Amino acid sequence: MGRRRKPWMRDVNGILLLDKPEGLSSNHALQRVRRLYSAAKAGHTGSLDPLATGMLPVCFGPCTKLSHYLLDADKQYTVGMRWGARTATGDAEGDVVEENAVRPDADTVARTAQDFVGEIGQVPPMYSAVHHQGRRLYEIAREGGEVERPSRVVTIYALQVGVQEGDILPLEVRCSKGTYVRTLVEDLARACGALAHVAWLRRDAVGPFAASAMHAMADVEAAAEQGAAALDALLLPPSAALTDWPAVTLDAARAFYLSRGEAVRVAAAPSRGRVAIYGPGNALLALGEIDADGMVAPRRMMQLPA
């Protein structure tokens, strides 16, 4: 049987770009926001550690169908790299396991950072949600265990070094999905002959979403006091998640055939690649691609209202 809907729940459709506060897990932030919206269905796209702050896209209702695509999106972070110690977790919450007094100069760090731009291999940290033989790595780590982890290929698009303040060096990172910033900080420090861990971490952007579109938890709570209309005014439409996808708009007849899984011909469609497919009223019908015959073919039906 499906989960019974509670009387206070309502249908919500859209995307909230929450500025997650420090000290709150992503799931706790999600549940708090869901209660404020009285939403029947909600999910977040990409966890942030409790230590981290910044962009946590929360998808409501039908928009949860877009979660997978946002999980796969590129990310942008600013991070404080604290010299002098490596910790068990790679961040300020873990116990110090190794220390040294090496403090590389700014030129050395900036020069070394460029070696990490492009495709690199990363070994996931033990304190991560990666599965190993049916268990999360962090569960094994909390028991004092450690297992061998295969390296994964990720892409660092940009790595900029900021101005040192005390023992903390700020970095700006633009990277692909699956990148562990804690591991990047440790590996960069090691390449400089030093030790470091994450002092603070902020996610500034996810995919097409900019930092300026985020809302603090306090803003959401204030809107909740004003009612559902004020809350819904904070939401972005489904199309906001797909601004980097070429768009194809169908008339009613073509939308009908496409909704049955059939490819359709559209005169103004791109010649190849993936497309977001819209119908009458700007409803998001499907995500698709241009097939070998130049037809617009659905690959994932959405049927999301505008």
Rank of each mutant, 00 (worst) to 15 (best):
Q164I: 11
V185M: 08
A158W: 12
I168N: 03
H197G: 01
Y257M: 09
H197W: 03
A218I: 10
G162W: 13
A194N: 09
C192G: 07
E165F: 11
E165I: 12
R202D: 01
V161E: 01
I156D: 02
M217D: 02
L242N: 00
L231W: 11
D232T: 05
T179K: 14
W200D: 00
G178N: 13
W245L: 06
A189P: 06
D244A: 09
A240L: 08
E186M: 15
L242T: 06
E221Y: 10
R202G: 01
A228L: 09
W200F: 09
D251E: 03
C192T: 09
A253K: 15
H215E: 04
A213E: 11
A241S: 10
D244H: 07
V198P: 05
V185F: 13
R182W: 08
L236P: 12
D219K: 09
T249L: 05
I168T: 11
Y180N: 05
L250D: 00
P208A: 14
P170Y: 12
L184S: 04
A158L: 09
M214S: 10
Q164N: 12
Q160P: 03
L242R: 06
A228F: 14
D232G: 04
T155W: 07
Q164K: 12
I168S: 07
E172A: 15
R202H: 12
F256A: 15
V220G: 01
A223C: 04
G193S: 06
D244E: 11
A240F: 08
A230Y: 07
A199G: 04
V154I: 15
T179V: 13
R203F: 05
D167L: 14
V163R: 14
A205R: 04
E172S: 14
T249H: 08
A228N: 06
C175E: 05
Y157F: 13
L188K: 10
I156T: 06
C175L: 15
A253V: 09
A233R: 04
P170D: 10
R254F: 07
A158D: 00
P170R: 01
A229I: 13
A158R: 15
L171V: 12
V181M: 11
L231V: 11
M217L: 15
A218Q: 07
A255G: 02
W245T: 01
R203Q: 05
A253I: 07
A233C: 02
G166N: 08
P170M: 12
P208D: 02
R203T: 06
G166M: 12
Y180G: 00
V181T: 05
V248Q: 00
V181P: 01
A241T: 11
H215T: 01
L235S: 02
A222C: 00
D187V: 14
A211K: 06
L171W: 14
V154T: 10
Y157L: 07
G178A: 08
L242G: 00
D187Y: 15
Y157C: 05
P170W: 13
G178F: 11
V185I: 03
A224L: 08
A222H: 06
E225G: 15
A194V: 08
Q164C: 12
W245I: 05
L184E: 02
A252H: 06
D232H: 13
P238L: 13
G166K: 08
L195K: 12
R254Q: 02
V163W: 11
D167T: 10
A205T: 04
A253L: 14
A241L: 09
Y257V: 11
R182N: 02
A252C: 05
E165M: 09
A191I: 11
L195P: 06
P238I: 14
T249S: 10
T243K: 09
A199M: 07
D204S: 02
L231D: 03
